[in-house]
C-alpha cells in the first residue's frame, strides 16, 4: 500500500495540533505551558487506560507505570548521573515495558473486576515500597535535576521552553502512533475482544495475546507520561503510584470516552483547568465533585464528552 492512503485527516490534524502547541510555547506564559505539559503528560497515561478500555478492561492501577516512569527518570538522573532527556525517556519506557511484560502474563488471564482490582493492588504495592524506601526519599520522594539534550545543555532561561517543546514532540509522536493503532487491524480486533472474546478465538486469533500486548503498550505510554511529568515538575514522589492518582486517570478516560484519539488530551486539559480552580475555591470537596461528575457521566454521557462533539451514530477511530 502506498504511503498516501495511510495518512488520513485525523493524522494531519494531529500533526497540525502538535506544531501549533509547540509554537504556542514561545508566546504563552510559562505557567500555562507548565499546566499544559502536566495535562498532556497525564493524558498519555490516560491513553493507556483508554487502550485497555477499548478491550473492555478498566485499570485502576495505571499509577504503577506512571510511577515507574517517574522513578526511572529520578533514579537514573540522581544515582547514575544520566541527564540526557532521550536516554531517560528510553529508560522509563524500558523499565515499564519490562515490568509489564512480566505482570502482563498474570494480568492477561483476568477480566472485569479481577483485572480492575488486581491492577489497583499492584500499583498500591509499588506505593507501599516507595513509601518504605528511605533511600528513595520515602513519602517525600526526591528532586530530579534538569535535563540535557543529546549533549546540549540549554541556558537556564531556556530549560523550561525546551522541556515544553520536548513534551509536545513526544506527545505528538505518541498520538500519531496511537491514531494508527486505533485504526489498525489490532485496534479493530481489540474492540472485537471487548464485544465477544469467544468469537475472536474462533476467528483464529488469541484474545489473551492482544490483551497482553495492550497491557504492555499502556504501560509504555504511562511511563512516558511519568517521565515527562518528572521533567516538568523536577520532582517525583510515591503519590504518582497512589490509588487516587490512578483513579484520576480512569476519571479522565471516562470523561473523554474511547471514541477518538484526541479525546483523552482534551479531557485531560479540561480536567486540569477545572482542578486548578476547584483547588483554589473548594480544596476540601475536590473528590466529592469528581465523584458526582463521574456519576453524572455514567448516567448521562456513557460514551464520554467526545460523544457531544461527534455526529450521532458515526463512531470512527
Amino acid at each position: 500500500m502506498s504511503a498516501k492512503t495511510t495518512i488520513d485527516k485525523t493524522q494531519v490534524a494531529l500533526l497540525i495540533a502538535t506544531a501549533a502547541f509547540a509554537a504556542a510555547g514561545v508566546i504563552a506564559p510559562y505557567w500555562l505551558c507548565f499546566l499544559t505539559m502536566l495535562a498532556l503528560a497525564k493524558a498519555l497515561v490516560v491513553q493507556g487506560v483508554v487502550i485497555q478500555m477499548r478491550l473492555g478492561l478498566v485499570s485502576f492501577g495505571q499509577g504503577l507505570f506512571f510511577g515507574i516512569g517517574g522513578y526511572a527518570v529520578g533514579i537514573a538522573s540522581n544515582f547514575w548521573g544520566i541527564s540526557d532527556a532521550f536516554v531517560l525517556l528510553a529508560l522509563a519506557l524500558a523499565a515499564a515495558v519490562a515490568v509489564a511484560a512480566v505482570l502482563g502474563l498474570l494480568m492477561a488471564r483476568y477480566r472485569d473486576i479481577f483485572f480492575a482490582m488486581l491492577s489497583l493492588a499492584l500499583s498500591m504495592i509499588l506505593f507501599g515500597v516507595l513509601v518504605k524506601s528511605q533511600g528513595l526519599g520515602s513519602t517525600d520522594g526526591f528532586n530530579v535535576p534538569a535535563q540535557s539534550y543529546l549533549g546540549w545543555v540549554p541556558a537556564p532561561g531556556q530549560q523550561k521552553l525546551v522541556a515544553y517543546v520536548l513534551t509536545i514532540a513526544v506527545v505528538g509522536t505518541v498520538a500519531l502512533l496511537l491514531c494508527r493503532y486505533l485504526g489498525s487491524g489490532a485496534g479493530q480486533i481489540a474492540e472485537a475482544v471487548r464485544e465477544n472474546e469467544i468469537r475472536v478465538e474462533y476467528l483464529g486469533l488469541s484474545p489473551r495475546w492482544l490483551i497482553y500486548a495492550s497491557y504492555v503498550m499502556a504501560a509504555g505510554v504511562a511511563a512516558l507520561g511519568g517521565a515527562l511529568t518528572a521533567f516538568a515538575t523536577g520532582h517525583v514522589d510515591p503519590e504518582m503510584a497512589y490509588w487516587a492518582t490512578s483513579g484520576e486517570f480512569v476519571f479522565i478516560a471516562l470523561l473523554g470516552g474511547t471514541a477518538h484519539v484526541a479525546a483523552p488530551f482534551l479531557a485531560s486539559i479540561l480536567f486540569s483547568v477545572v482542578r486548578t480552580y476547584a483547588f483554589e475555591y473548594t480544596p476540601h470537596t475536590w473528590q466529592l465533585i469528581l465523584g458526582l461528575v463521574l456519576l453524572a457521566i455514567i448516567v448521562f454521557l456513557p460514551k464520554g464528552l467526545w460523544s457531544l462533539v461527534q455526529r450521532e451514530g458515526k463512531v470512527r477511530a
Partner: peptide, 12 residues
C-alpha cells in the same frame, strides 16, 4: 494470527 498494529484495518 498477529494482526498489524499500524496498518489500517479497513484497507480497500
Amino acid at each position: 494470527a498477529h494482526p498489524s498494529f499500524l496498518k489500517p484495518a479497513r484497507s480497500p
